[in-house]
């Protein structure tokens, strides 16, 4: 049964305490959170497979460090959405501000609108699917995981990238240091299509995406690369 939590009547502290009470428990809790009003730090530190629907816009760090939970924001999200997420699912039906999915280690982050700059910065294993566009310096120093962008990507995509795999369908304004386009093989097309399916996005053909990754030229200090450091 879905329980309702009203942020007009209760504080962020109470919300997180309430949601975190499920941490370690077995029963799947279902919550509808109303009147978020752009508040920061909502539904952070969850550690159980709860289902949380937030009805409205959220501020900074919503769903931060999430483990196991499925959190859906029916609205837009402020900076640091799902930062350092470990597992589970975070979805926003609107757009997300800077550093969505920053340093996240696992799970799936779906942004149905656009993501601002530095989407997937230093990502460490998370999968991020953006239905719209991403801003500049997305996947900066991204270490692992996959970023799928159905729209365009801004300047300096994948700057100083490590092993993360980037897929973009639209225009790429520019690539960052050590980020190169790589060939799109069948297995990559299948990878994109599987991620789109997991994200619940239909009507987009995996073959329309281009793949980007690390040239691995900056992995070790080389005098000849001094211009790039």
């Amino acid at each position: 049964m879905t329980q309702v939590f009203d942020l007009a009547a209760n504080s962020t502290r109470e919300l997180n305490q309430t949601l975190q009470r499920a941490n370690g428990g077995s029963a799947i809790e279902q919550w509808r959170v109303v009147n978020p009003n752009g508040a920061h730090n909502l539904a952070v530190g969850l550690d159980a497979p709860s289902r949380v629907e937030i009805e409205g816009h959220v501020g900074y760090y919503c769903a931060g460090m999430n483990k196991y939970a499925h959190i859906v924001v029916h609205g837009n999200a402020g900076p640091g959405l799902a930062e350092n997420m470990m597992s589970g699912l975070v979805r926003v039906t609107g757009s997300a501000s800077q550093y969505a999915g920053a340093t996240a280690h696992g799970g799936l982050l779906v942004i149905e609108g656009d993501a601002s700059s530095r989407c997937g910065i230093s990502m460490k294993g998370v999968d991020i699917v953006v239905q719209g566009a991403v801003g500049h310096m997305s996947a900066f120093m991204a270490q692992s995981g996959r970023l799928v962008v159905c729209g365009d990507a801004g300047e300096a995509l994948g700057d100083s990238l490590y092993e993360a795999r980037l897929y973009v369908r639209g225009n790429v304004a520019g690539l960052g240091a050590d980020c190169v386009e790589k060939s799109m093989k069948d297995k990559h097309k299948r990878e994109v299509e599987q991620l789109l399916a997991e994200a619940g996005i239909s009507g987009v053909d995996g073959a329309e995406f281009r793949r980007f990754g690390s040239a691995r030229e900056l992995y070790n200090f080389k005098v000849d690369n001094a211009h790039a450091y």
Binding site: T12, R13, N16, H40, N41, V44, G45, G59, Y60, Y61, G64, M65, G80
Partner: peptide
Amino acid sequence: IKIRELREIT
């Protein structure tokens, strides 16, 4: 805000 997030988590 970041510090508050860390406090909320812990």
